[in-house]
Every structure is written in C-alpha cells, then in structure tokens.
Amino acid sequence: MSEQPSQPTETWNLRLYIAGQTPRSIKALTNLRTICQTYLEGRYTIEVIDLIETPQLASRDQILALPTLVRKLPPPIRKIIGDLSDIERVLVGLEIH
C-alpha cells in the first residue's frame, strides 16, 4: 500500500467529466482506470460526471473540452483534456511520479 513512502496517506481525488457514453468517453474512463490501478492502487477515487445529466456542473470547474479529467486532490487543481490515450503524458499531467 505504501509504495511511495514520502506520501503514504495521500489520496487522489479525480473527477472525470464526460457527455454521454460516447466511444471517446468510454476510452477516457478505461484509460484512467488503468492508470489509477497501476500507479495509485488503493488511494484514489474517481467521480464520473456526465454533463448530459447535470449540465449545470460544467461551469463550476470551467469545463469546455470533453472529456476533461480534473485532479481535485492533491492540490493544486490540474486539468487534462482528451481521451487520455497517452499514458506517459497523463502521468506527467497529473504529476504522478
């Protein structure tokens, strides 16, 4: 569980914005799950927000592009847009070392 001893209790709170079950949304969610299971095992949460159902939430996180992944925790907030197909770049974007 504590593969990264420097931050043993750090929780990753991730939020993925999508609009419906499009192939791009599904791809992004699949890629995100793979990354989390591989690098953040046991210390992450993923919240999926479908803006087709809750459009009023789009303004809150200043969402323009979809899919958008928002790293709520740890701070600062980071955003990654796209289908997350390049795992290396997602790791850089989320600052997962």
Binding site: I63, T68, R78, K79, I80, S85
Partner: peptide, 12 residues
C-alpha cells in the same frame, strides 16, 4: 492549467 492528451471535443 491544461494538459492535452488525445482527442477531445468542445462539448462542454
């Protein structure tokens, strides 16, 4: 603030 990884739309 934004990293771009892969394909996206401006559906938001």
């Amino acid at each position: 603030d934004i990293e771009e990884v892969g394909d996206y739309t401006l559906d938001g």
